[in-house]
Design a protein around this nucleic acid. Structure first.
Lengths: 215, 215
DNA sequence: ATTAACGTTTAGGCAACTCAAAATGTCAAA
DNA sequence: TTTGACATTTTGAGTTGCCTAAACGTTAAT
């Protein structure tokens, strides 16, 4: 197993390849790799029993592929937790470091790290960390944009994107905050929320609101 | 810069390429790579200004190459310290983990780790850790085998080899112990030492004694 | 001074992963 | 149902780093 194969596996997983079929183009765009190369690489994953591929229809993961992708997500998120908790990295900076560390992390290392960190259940962006056996609670899929005016919700999870995280940091929106949804402006305008603890009112841009998940 | 180039650089450094010329064969043997491949790779290092190569005479590092190799040693040893100190790895097990982690470690990450660990000066095997600017105290080059009967010395450094470290752990010899050298048996027999703190007498095999350094 | 032994370099190939461009498939609008 | 737009696969070729085998240098012993 090579780092690149692992990246393919993880991106298919993240694009929803556990349930539906993911298109060649989605993968090519996400990894910034030519479509032809994707077809070829997917062929290898299929040979190794990690993915299923119906030509022209799409790609999905086998049980074995899902299992493998979960171990990668586990490593990635454990490292992110370590970087924030122990090395005091900022949220926007952890992703790129974890991205390379995850590929050189043995089972023993990730297990040791997990114990050292006190068995965290969620990464700093709010994503669930699969345990050693691959068990984890499903992440929320209700975005702030989906919520209704008047809803009282908790900020649960951010999409792990550098620019988004910089923006959220600027406007002081954090995981775990309990907020009240005040109003949705029309024409793709901001969603305004009020942080319960401080009474602070925050307008969250339309696009960002689609990348913040609540429960 | 690729992981393999980094490995070449580090092995040339460790074989003494900072001062003398290192032979193609030494590198090939150390990395377990064919001699022809070594010539080729060295050519690339030369092109990048990291090494000097006089055909048929040998290979040495440029100032730039030395500087780079030091950053690798720094990363390697910082990781080793982390693994032993925070994750409670045993001495013999840290090398292989550090070997891969060092290649994916940014300057920011190694600096953060160093601070987190309290700016250690030596790795768990007793080797000096170069600081951010590349400064470090030269390691001792006096082996236990070189010492004289009656000498009172401190165990400073072990060569980082898995089997050796397993053996040293078995016979309970540790970095930092103050010991008295009792006798050198002839015919490549063991060197017997007495640990001052406990009065324990330990015979150290001839070969191991050549891989334990004291001061 | 030759030659044998051994280290080193060169040459030709292979495997992994990539790309660009050509060929093919799909689907929906005209 | 034909055509155009676009996604997908196929093809041919480039890069990196490795290998084996052959050619070449060096050195030390005869």
């Amino acid at each position: 197993m090579t780092p690149m194969k692992e990246d393919y596996l993880k991106i298919i997983f993240e694009l929803g390849g556990t349930k539906k079929k993911v298109s060649n183009k989605q993968i090519a765009l996400s990894l910034d790799i030519a479509a032809g190369s994707v077809t070829e690489m997917v062929g290898k994953l299929v040979q190794e029993g990690l993915a299923k591929h119906t030509p022209y229809a799409g790609i999905s993961l086998t049980k074995k592929g899902i299992r493998y992708a979960e171990t990668l997500v586990r490593k990635h998120r454990i490292w992110e937790d370590f970087l924030v908790d122990k090395l005091h990295y900022g949220l926007p900076d952890v992703h790129s470091e974890a991205e390379v560390l995850e590929h050189v992390t043995s089972e023993r290392l990730v297990d040791s790290l997990e114990a050292f960190l006190g068995n965290p259940t969620h990464c700093p962006h709010g994503g669930a960390i699969p345990d050693k056996e691959g068990h984890y609670q499903e992440d929320s899929h209700t975005s702030l944009a989906d919520s209704q005016d008047g809803d009282e919700v908790a900020i649960e999870r951010f999409i792990d994107n550098h620019d988004l995280l910089m923006y959220l940091h600027d406007i002081d929106l954090q995981i775990g905050q309990d907020v009240t949804v005040m109003k949705h402006d029309p024409f793709e305008g901001p969603v305004t929320i009020e942080v319960k603890a401080t009474g602070q009112k925050i307008p969250v841009s339309y696009k960002a609101a689609h990348n913040v998940f609540v429960k």
